[in-house]
Simulated scan of single mutants.
Amino acid sequence: MRVLAIESSSVTASAAILTDNTVTAEYSTNFKQTHSQTLLPMIDSICTMTGTPVESIDLIAVSAGPGSFTGLRIGSATGKGIGLALGKPVVSVPTLEGLAMNVSGTDRIVCPIMDARRGNVYAGIYRFNYNDGGNLEIIMNQSLLAAQEVMEKLNQLGRPVVFAGDAVYMYRELIESALNIDAIIAADHNVMPRAASVAVRGVQLANMGLAADAAEHVPDYLRPSQAERERADRNEA
């Protein structure tokens, strides 16, 4: 199976090709350009450099959210457009599940956290089941929570944890002060979202029957957009 993966949920833009469970190409940037400027050139570049005809792609894995509303829309539109043009299925990969795959191989529970502003984070809690081929298991599905609440949930679990995601640096002091369990932060090169990880998780989800027609793919923002929140506030006033 050949998978094209797209990750655009944060400031990092990333595209990857996974061929028969081997990452044959990955292109990532963490630079001040919009994803609309970078994603398609990235995809074209990795296909060209690996001699991969885009028609040979079997599955498109898209980081579906949560994250930046604009980034998710761009990534989803790109993956959906390619899927529709090629008649290929799309698998929606929850962003935090993709992030968890960055530290595949750990025996700790994994807690990716992404900044959601105002003291809140997008967070999920996972473990790897090595009795089931290393598949990711969900302990807590990705949610919008106060950062302090995430720490409380981890203390209740009472197990060593590894953190990833763009909020780890922002909440490093809270992690160190609020947890009474052994906690570490992933290495810097594994903290941010990666398309290669989205591809690997995409295959796991596709094997569970969760790939779908490209037309069905939509981002999962986990909360209303700012415009929707402001409209709701006006209606309540």
Score class of each variant (00 low, 15 high):
R2V: 11
R2M: 13
A5D: 03
A5I: 03
S8C: 05
A13Q: 10
A13R: 04
S14Y: 00
A15N: 01
T22Y: 10
V23T: 02
V23P: 06
T24D: 11
E26P: 04
E26W: 12
S28I: 02
T29Y: 11
K32V: 08
K32T: 09
Q33I: 12
Q33L: 05
T34L: 08
T34C: 12
S36N: 09
P41T: 06
I43L: 14
D44V: 01
D44K: 11
S45I: 02
C47V: 01
C47P: 08
T48Y: 11
T48W: 11
T52M: 11
P53E: 09
V54L: 10
V54R: 05
V54A: 08
V54S: 05
S56R: 11
I57V: 07
L59A: 03
L59C: 06
I60S: 02
A61T: 00
P66E: 00
S68I: 01
S68R: 06
F69T: 03
T78K: 03
G79H: 05
K80V: 00
K80D: 00
K80Q: 07
G81I: 00
I82L: 15
L86I: 04
G87A: 15
G87L: 15
P89I: 00
V90Y: 07
V90F: 03
V91S: 12
T95G: 06
E97C: 04
E97Q: 14
G98I: 01
L99D: 13
A100F: 00
A100V: 01
N102Q: 09
S104Q: 14
C111H: 12
P112R: 06
I113C: 15
I113V: 15
M114G: 12
A116Y: 11
R117I: 13
R118W: 14
N120H: 15
N120R: 14
G124Q: 09
G124I: 00
I125H: 14
Y126I: 04
R127C: 14
F128H: 09
N129W: 12
N131V: 10
N131D: 15
N131S: 15
N131A: 15
N131Q: 15
G133S: 12
G133Q: 13
G134K: 07
E137T: 05
M140V: 15
S143I: 15
L144P: 07
A146S: 15
M151Y: 15
M151S: 11
G158F: 09
P160D: 07
A167D: 01
V168E: 03
V168Q: 07
Y171L: 14
R172L: 07
L174K: 08
I175S: 05
A178V: 09
I181H: 01
I181Y: 03
I184Q: 11
D188I: 04
H189C: 07
V191P: 06
M192I: 08
M192D: 12
P193T: 06
S197A: 08
A199P: 01
A199K: 05
G202V: 05
A206Q: 08
N207F: 00
D213K: 14
D213C: 07
A214L: 05
A215P: 09
P219F: 03
D220C: 06
D220G: 05
Y221G: 04
Y221M: 07
L222Q: 01
L222E: 04
S225H: 11
Q226W: 11
Q226C: 08
A227L: 10
R229L: 09
R229M: 10
R229I: 04
E230N: 02
R231S: 13
